[in-house]
């Protein structure tokens, strides 16, 4: 087995990691609203990734599921941070981001189906990269806002043992890295570009997914002591 094959294998399993984290979030279930939302988030993601995998194995286009995953990411990130305290303005931004996300999804779906109608052999990916990038940027800013509030309030005595820091760091780290990939996704999936760049981007998102779920796992681990 070559190094590339090992990397592909590891990256392939990144989506399944959420199932393990969802299971862990049930085992380590905490009654606080933040952890209730986190468990629901992990379960929703686990369900959607499982559906996406089943559809892909049956040869059915699963773009709609991935668009839904994007919605879950944005909605749950907002609800999670809302539990930690957000000003009213964030609700307005959230609604705007969500509307733009749906608008981009609908636009991408219509334009790609139109292209398929004209040319059934056309390579279309149904990637709503603008809506998704906007959503990820929103999550990234939410994360930075939370860290800044945490820094100002100075309420946490040991950041290294603060479960919410790990969980929000995982979400922010993923959003920050994936934002870049999705922003350039139209270039990345361009048939003119080399396969290496697609491979690299895919590995990067997989790596970020590992980071995200490992950090959430650490957070869930520390949550038992709080």
């Amino acid at each position: 087995m070559t190094l590339k094959e090992i990397t592909i294998l590891i990256a392939d399993y990144s989506d399944y990691l959420v199932v393990l984290v969802a299971a862990l979030s049930i085992i380590r279930f905490r009654k606080s609203s933040f952890f209730k939302v986190l468990t629901t988030y992990c379960l929703s993601l686990a369900s959607l990734y499982t559906i996406a995998t089943i559809l892909a194995r049956q040869g059915v286009n699963n773009w709609l599921v991935y668009h839904l995953i994007g919605v879950v990411e944005i909605v749950f990130a907002f609800i999670l941070y809302k539990q930690l305290g957000l000003k009213k303005i964030w609700t307005l931004i959230f609604v705007t981001v969500l509307i733009l996300y749906f608008a981009d999804s609908i636009y991408v779906a219509i334009s790609d189906y139109n292209e398929l109608a004209l040319n059934p052999k056309a390579e279309v990916y149904f990637v709503n990269h603008l809506g998704l990038s906007g959503g990820l940027l929103f999550i990234l800013i939410l994360g930075i806002n939370f860290l800044w509030t945490l820094y100002k309030k100075e309420e946490v005595q040991e950041i290294g043992k603060y479960s919410i820091f790990y969980i929000t760091s995982g979400i922010t780290l993923y959003a920050g890295g994936a934002f870049f990939v999705h922003l350039y996704s139209s270039i990345i999936i361009d048939p003119e570009m080399s396969d290496d760049i697609f491979f690299y981007s895919w590995i990067m998102v997989a790596g970020l997914t590992y980071f995200k779920f490992i950090l959430i796992t650490i957070g869930l681990w520390y949550a038992k002591d709080e």
Partner: peptide
Amino acid sequence: DFTIILLGTFAMTFMITVMFAFAYLYQKKI
């Protein structure tokens, strides 16, 4: 290709560094 790989790596490294730096600076402040 090279630019995208470089920027991607930089973005990822930057995010990780920011998280570590935040944790370090926060704890130092506390």
